[in-house]
């Protein structure tokens, strides 16, 4: 299984010379299974370049949305494969008690916010609620679970043979209690889907000082993400959802803080264009 980062920024795209190392595009991660299965996690602005890079021989692509905040769906209308006749595009997202996924996405992908309607896509588009039990997508096994973030939000766990990967792009588990607790993970958001994974991609948007002023905004600090990774037994942690106000040097500092807190875990800052092999 390969994990490729096409967008690592949170909240707002932030292109500029100060963000070239980690990248300025918003959330988009490609997972490629050992059998060639391709799934895309989130459709932030990073998905535009991914769409251009995907093989035209591909017959199906699955886009798994964690939630419908703009930084996770803004690239969808610029995802070229959406307009390829004959291609199957499956879009998965968090369930809602009131409206289906297509209706909610159409609030953005329609005038006046966007010139093209979702129904005008040339591909064969299907919508699904994020699975809450493991399902097979090609050779990959995928499972979602609701996690703590404002509005319906899910995290995903992906398995390819023995390799496991969890993606919790926007997550504030500290709201559910002490992450240093010794009594297990029964009451910790995201604990099941992240348990023991080879790679955990997790929200590390803030420094501890910033986080103290933004409780309830749905994101984690370096120390909280480190504590969560330790609690669930992740082997590696990719710091993700970099704050749009942070330049590369600031992200370096936050990644270093995270790594220092959990020296037993391989910590790195997710960079646009980087591929991790699991």
């Amino acid at each position: 299984m390969k994990v490729t980062f096409w967008g690592t920024r949170g909240s707002l795209a932030s292109a500029g010379p100060e963000t070239v190392r980690y990248g300025g595009n918003t959330a988009c991660v490609q997972v490629t299974g050992s059998d060639g299965t391709c799934i895309v996690l989130d459709a932030g602005t990073g998905i535009r370049r991914l769409g251009a890079a995907l093989s035209r021989d591909l017959t199906r692509v699955d886009i798994l949305l964690t939630h419908l905040h703009m930084d996770h769906i803004q690239g969808l209308g610029f995802f070229d494969p959406l307009f390829r006749p004959g291609l199957e595009v499956h879009i998965w997202g968090p369930p809602s008690a009131t409206q289906d996924l297509r209706t909610r996405l159409s609030r953005y992908l329609s005038p006046p916010l966007f010139p093209i309607r979702l129904r005008d896509a040339d591909s064969d588009v299907h919508f699904h609620n994020a699975p809450d039990v493991p399902v097979s997508i090609g050779g990959l096994e995928v499972c979602g679970a609701e996690i703590v973030h404002p509005g319906p939000t899910v995290g995903y766990r992906v398995r390819d043979g023995a390799a496991t990967f969890a993606y919790l792009s926007d997550h504030e588990p500290a709201l559910t209690g002490d992450l240093d607790r010794r009594d297990g993970t029964r009451w910790t958001s995201g604990a099941d889907i992240a348990a023991g994974v080879d790679l955990l991609v997790h929200d590390v948007q803030y420094s501890p000082d910033e986080r103290a002023e933004r409780i309830g905004w749905g994101h984690s600090s370096s120390l909280e993400a480190a504590a969560f990774a330790r609690l669930v037994g992740a082997r590696r942690l990719a710091a993700f959802h970099h704050d749009p106000g942070h330049d590369d040097a600031a992200v370096d500092r936050i990644v270093a803080e995270t790594a220092a807190a959990v020296p037993e875990i391989g910590v790195f800052g997710a960079r646009e264009g980087e591929t991790v092999h699991l």
Partner: peptide, 10 residues
């Protein structure tokens, strides 16, 4: 996977 890690989350 809960059972694998002995983590039963509510």
């Amino acid at each position: 996977f809960r059972l694998e890690a002995d983590m039963a989350q509510e």
